[in-house]
């Protein structure tokens, strides 16, 4: 690198940093964000957490109810993810370059995926809430739609990554489309796809809490209830059970991933 190039790079970096600083400043202005205030809040918030977010004997009495709601939330996430995965598999087969049937279906599949993925899960929940009402099905459908879009994209990537040459070889033996998909494409991409499904289950348990707050179901609803009535001991207990559930599921998925990938 010569003197001039270093100079030019320095310039670029400086301009880039200035732009970032400017955008950040703009953001603080538009959101009314007070930097000093928020820094001051952190110790106060953490102090508050340590004094108020304590699990007490009384709150433990709520444990059975919490477990039931937590179970509902976990099941909701798993069901939404697995069923979305089944549909995504079809969409991904239609959408992938390797296995597409024709260009129209491929475009359509990619369009559906992009549409369902880029509308946030919150929007889906609120839209579905209007007619489906406060029950698990609303949350299930919201998670299902958002997961569908994400998994379709991930599956298309996994299929495209799988080695093309065995597809060519099977075509040359006179195999049909479904033979090729089931014996050359899926065996190669299935472990990768499962890994994505596990990832999505973890994510969805966290999203399910959010969806629950909005749609009045599951552990999210429970949290909201005790949060609004300022019963912070139960709030703490709920938070801890969610953390434990998420971490346990993450550990299990990591174990499975280690074996299959």
């Amino acid at each position: 690198m010569n003197e001039k190039k270093i100079h030019k790079n320095k310039w670029q970096t400086t301009i880039f940093l200035l732009i970032i600083i400017f955008i950040t400043y703009l953001s603080t202005a538009i959101t009314d964000f007070n930097f000093i205030d928020s820094i001051a809040t952190i110790p106060a918030a953490i102090g508050w957490m340590f004094t108020n977010l304590m699990v007490t004997q009384e709150s433990m009495a709520k444990m059975p109810a919490i477990m039931e709601k937590l179970g509902e939330t976990i099941f909701m996430s798993i069901a939404a993810t697995t069923l979305a995965a089944v549909v995504s598999l079809f969409l991904a087969l239609l959408g992938s370059k390797t296995t597409k049937v024709n260009n129209i279906f491929s475009m359509l599949a990619r369009f559906i995926a992009s549409f369902s993925r880029n509308i946030p899960v919150v929007a889906w929940s609120l839209i579905l809430l209007i007619s489906f009402g406060q029950n698990s099905v609303t949350g299930f459908l919201a998670l299902f739609v958002a997961t569908l879009g994400f998994l379709t994209r991930a599956f298309i990537e996994s299929i495209d990554e799988a080695n093309q040459s065995s597809v060519e070889a099977l075509t040359a033996t006179g195999a049909t489309y479904f033979h090729i998909v089931s014996k050359a494409v899926i065996p190669q991409s299935l472990p990768q796809m499962l890994s994505w499904i596990l990832f999505m289950i973890e994510t969805n348990i966290r999203s399910a809490t959010l969806v629950g707050i909005l749609t009045g179901t599951g552990i999210g609803y429970m949290f909201d209830l005790y949060y609004k009535s300022m019963n912070y001991n139960v709030v703490a207990l709920i938070t801890f059970t969610i953390v434990i559930a998420v971490i346990v599921i993450e550990l299990i998925s990591n174990k499975i991933r280690k074996v299959i990938l």
Binding site: S166, A169, T176, H179, K183
Partner: peptide, 26 residues
């Protein structure tokens, strides 16, 4: 151009797909 994750015997049997219906093959 073999399917890497499958067994040798499975890969050999792939040569029979031309004689199979879709369901038999799947």
């Amino acid at each position: 151009n073999l399917v890497p994750r499958l067994t040798v015997i499975e890969n050999v049997l792939h040569g029979r797909f031309g004689y199979k219906s879709t369901l038999q093959g799947v």
